[in-house]
Design a protein around this nucleic acid. Structure first.
Lengths: 207, 207
DNA sequence: CGTTTAATTAATAGAGTTATTAAATATTAT
DNA sequence: ATAATATTTAATAACTCTATTAATTAAACG
């Protein structure tokens, strides 16, 4: 039960829904609860977004795009060496996940609930992803040919990056409970793992 | 709607529940659906397990233990070098996750639903985990002192291992959809990433 | 065999869910 | 200010879900 804002209800509902869907997932969040969070009538949620599924899809699509497009917004990537580019990509990706620590879980869960959704979004991202991959891949191959990097595929590098970065935030709640960490320790671990993840990937390039 | 087995209903219900909870999570699985899967009356689920929560906790606890104890069952770990031990642990952990690809998601999701559960199970695993850590840590420190391994903590090594291994199976459904992989390609990727994960960690030890 | 106990089902209370509809209130435009 | 439109709410239909109870069927036992 929140105090009503002067912002539009339509937006407030979207924001509350985003918060709750990220916190508790699709199935455990009801439109009744979203309305309660906003402080409005439950029917209003349906007035603006018709169905819960609709509302969820809007949020999911936004988050999914954000998650995959973030990398492409890194500035001044052109004039760097491959190694520097890669380092910046890993760090940027890490920072993005840090700011959206529950998005990976949302995506993974949504996929098992509704696999078609990803198929739909895939089409929309195809070009953007392909473009980045192309550029980086050229650089990578040049480095390999020059013998400065071991034989490795770009896909593997990206996969390792995503794996290491997202798992930290997936596992941290569980790990910090098991290891009884306080907020300060968690903060330390996050910063430490940011460096460690970069080291891991960069080290894996060595011949 | 399945054909009734001659196995006991109690067990069949547990098995069906395990299957469904792993597939769809706690909130999206109903006792009605579990009963339908077994082919019995819905009240029977409650007759044997009283509440859905109860039934879930039984399964969760089993899976959680399995997940954390697997490592300790590796045989002939004693007479190996630290590097060989580590390699075996990474591979064993990978194989365990491969056999239970949905367990990590179950654990992560359950934690955000009910953080106390992990706190409870933590106590029960404390000793076992501490014991393994102690042994490995002695080895690791000896290697570092001897200058054969860079300065790194055991926690980091374990964390990286778990991260890389579980993410593969978390991301594979999404990734294989995005990249339109068939079963054969998925199989190839899994075997390839098994090796790649070992390489990544072992490489990260280099001075 | 009959009787006690266990397994299974039908029925249902009670709560919560999504989504719609009609009525009430607020806003905007003429 | 009045009509037209947009926003918001109350009420409710139609489900589904969990959990319990009483009744029925099957198994075990003396």
């Amino acid at each position: 039960m929140e105090v009503k804002d002067n912002s539009s209800m339509e937006v407030l509902i979207l924001e509350a829904a985003e918060k709750l869907f990220l916190e508790k997932g699709f199935a455990s969040t009801s439109t009744t609860e979203i309305a309660r969070e906003v402080g409005c009538n439950q029917a209003l949620v349906h007035y603006y977004y018709r169905t819960k599924e609709n509302l969820f899809n809007l949020i999911f699509e936004k988050k999914f795009r954000q998650f995959f497009q973030y990398i492409f917004n890194i500035e001044n990537l052109d004039q760097m060496s491959f190694q520097d580019k890669l380092k910046r990509i890993i760090e940027s990706h890490f920072d993005m996940v840090r700011q959206n620590p529950r998005v990976p879980l949302l995506i993974v869960n949504e996929f098992s609930r509704n696999p078609e959704m990803v198929a739909i979004l895939k089409e929309k991202l195809k070009d953007v992803v392909a473009k980045l991959f192309e550029g980086l891949n050229t650089d990578l191959e040049a480095e390999i040919t020059a013998g400065r990097i071991r034989q490795i595929t770009l896909i593997d590098l990206i996969f390792s990056t995503i794996s290491l970065n997202i798992s930290l935030f997936l596992l941290l709640p569980v790990a910090s409970e098991i290891m009884s960490m306080d907020e300060k320790q968690r903060e330390f671990v996050i910063n430490h793992r940011r460096e460690e993840n970069v080291k891991l990937i960069m080290n894996s390039l060595r011949v």
